[in-house]
Each structure stands twice: as structure tokens, then as C-alpha cells.
Nucleic acid binder design. Structure first.
Length: 266
DNA sequence: AAATACTACAACCGCGCTTTA
DNA sequence: ATAAAGCGCGGTTGTAGTATT
């Protein structure tokens, strides 16, 4: 009974919500000093009134060294789309093939940027996008209300007209644009018997359109790495410094394919 | 300029799996 | 063998920032 009261009391005192700079510093300093050994028992010694779960999440998604934040590159988005075609919502598996990206970030990016494009629901909001939209209105207004309300399957075909806005920023660049008048859905999907190439390449749009899209919205500089934490790379399980941790290599097409096939089969 | 609508993303929650005692 | 603890994953929510009216 007494134990229960203590637990409840501790729960009551646990802080929730956004992390402050001080909290980030405390957690980072603690991990830097002691490594990761047990999330739920680390919070106290680290001087944090947070659950272990919250600490873990903050570290994994934000504080970890060599995490990349900011806009996704063309290659990253291609990888996400390809792997999602094959794996569905296996965010951690998809994220593992993207250097410096977390499952949460990939998931958020998918839900906020890609899903809508694929679903064909995105409505441009700013005037520039509106003008662009008007130019191709005939092609884009074809979807009926009932189609818009329809839920999408896990594996979704990529429509050429819906691949705009991969900026990841909500400030200066045009929020949306419609560059293609093509309305055709390209490719068959969701068929496990299709080869990896078939299933992923079928999603791709006309080269001309795609190159335009990417040219407008991507540059490697758009993404940035979180501070290096003095080049500290600690194996989360062993708390042992691990210099190689930070330099996981980006996947080649071949390894990407192997990866997806392995995951699919296992 | 203010109100409203919408977007993006950090963080939380619940569940299931694995490990430990 | 099994209950508890820890961890990781995917879905969902809350909210700050921005665009539109």
C-alpha cells in the first residue's frame, strides 16, 4: 500500500510536455558521463522529474549525436516512399536506412507531407500555390468528395500529380504546387508477388516532372546535423563509446533492396 | 489587426515483445 | 515457469507557428 502511494506520488510529480533547455542539458550531461544503463532509473540521478520513457524518447528523437533535422533530401524521400511501398508503416525499419533520421521523424514526415500527396487531398493554401493550382485545375479537381474521404490502404500508389511540396519547412518556400497535369495513377502496388523494383519503381513519375519537383525543393544543405556532443558515440545498450556508430553508410539501391526483401520475408 | 483555419512536429500513450529476477 | 520491469514501436494528441479571411 505504502509502495503504491509512493508510486502514485512520483507519477504525480513527473513532468510532462515540452523539454526545457536545462532538461536537455541535464540529460545530455548525464548520458555523456554515465552512458545509458536503465532509462527509468536514470532520470532521478540525472536530476530530471521525467519518466524513463520520456527521457528515452527525448534522447532518441532529439538529443542523440548526429541526428539530422530539417528538410528531407530527395534521396531520403525516395527511400521513404520506396520502403513504405514494401514495408508499410514500419517506421523504425524505414528510419534505419536513413542516416540520422528517427522513426518518429519519418513517421511525422510521412503523415504530414507524403500521405496527403498520395491521397490527393492536399489543397494549396497560399496564393502562389493557388495560382499554380488554377493552371492545372481541370486535372486536379476531378476527385469527388467521397473519394477524398476514403481511407487509404497501407500501401498506396504514388500519383504524379501529388508529389509536390517536399520542403519540410513551413515558412518561406511555396507550401504546395502542382506541376503536372497528368492525372494518371502510375503503377500497381500492394502485390507481394511483384519484384521489389516493380513495386517501388512503379511509383515513379514522369522524369521531367520529377526533376522539376526536386530541383524546386531540395538541396542537401537544407538538412542539418544536431551538435556533435564532442563526437560522443555511445552504444545505447552497453554505454561503450563506439566511434563507428556515427558513420553508418547510406544505403545503395542494392542494399536497400536486400534490406526490404529480408524484412518482408522475416 | 484580429479571428480563424490549417500545418508541422514534439511528445505522449498503449500495446506487445524481450529480458530479468 | 512466471510475473515484473524495461524497451521499442506505431498511433494519436497538443500546441506553436503560419496563412488566410
Amino acid at each position: 500500500m505504502a509502495k503504491l502511494v509512493v508510486v502514485l506520488d512520483e507519477k504525480k510529480r513527473l513532468k510532462k510536455g515540452a523539454w526545457s533547455v536545462e532538461e536537455d542539458e541535464k540529460l545530455t550531461a548525464y548520458i555523456k558521463r554515465h552512458g545509458i544503463w536503465n532509462w527509468s532509473r536514470m532520470a532521478g540521478p540525472a536530476g530530471l522529474r521525467r519518466s524513463g520513457k520520456s527521457c528515452r524518447l527525448r534522447w532518441m528523437n532529439y538529443l542523440r549525436p548526429n541526428l539530422k533535422h530539417g528538410n528531407f533530401t530527395k534521396e531520403e524521400v525516395e527511400t521513404i516512399i520506396k520502403l513504405h511501398e514494401v514495408l508499410g508503416n514500419k517506421w523504425s525499419a524505414i528510419a534505419s536506412k536513413l542516416v540520422g533520421r528517427t522513426d518518429n521523424e519519418v513517421k511525422n514526415y510521412w503523415n504530414t507531407h507524403l500521405k496527403k500527396r498520395l491521397k490527393g487531398m492536399q489543397k494549396p493554401r497560399n496564393s502562389e500555390a493557388m495560382r499554380a493550382r488554377n493552371r492545372v485545375a481541370a486535372d486536379h479537381e476531378s476527385s469527388s468528395p467521397e473519394e477524398e474521404g476514403r481511407s487509404i490502404p497501407t500501401s498506396t500508389p504514388v500519383q504524379s500529380s501529388n508529389l509536390g511540396d517536399f520542403t519540410g519547412k513551413r515558412t518561406s518556400s511555396p507550401d504546395n504546387f502542382s506541376a503536372s497535369s497528368s492525372n494518371q495513377a502510375i503503377g500497381v502496388h500492394g502485390d507481394k508477388e511483384n519484384s521489389f523494383e516493380n513495386s517501388v519503381c512503379s511509383s515513379y513519375v514522369d522524369d521531367e516532372v520529377q526533376s522539376y519537383l526536386w530541383a524546386q525543393h531540395f538541396s542537401v544543405e537544407d538538412a542539418y546535423m544536431v551538435r556533435d556532443l564532442d563526437a560522443l558515440f555511445i552504444d545505447p545498450m552497453t554505454a561503450i563509446s563506439y566511434p563507428g556508430w556515427a558513420v553508418e553508410t547510406a544505403s545503395s539501391e542494392a542494399s536497400l533492396e536486400d534490406f526490404a526483401v529480408n524484412l518482408w520475408e522475416n
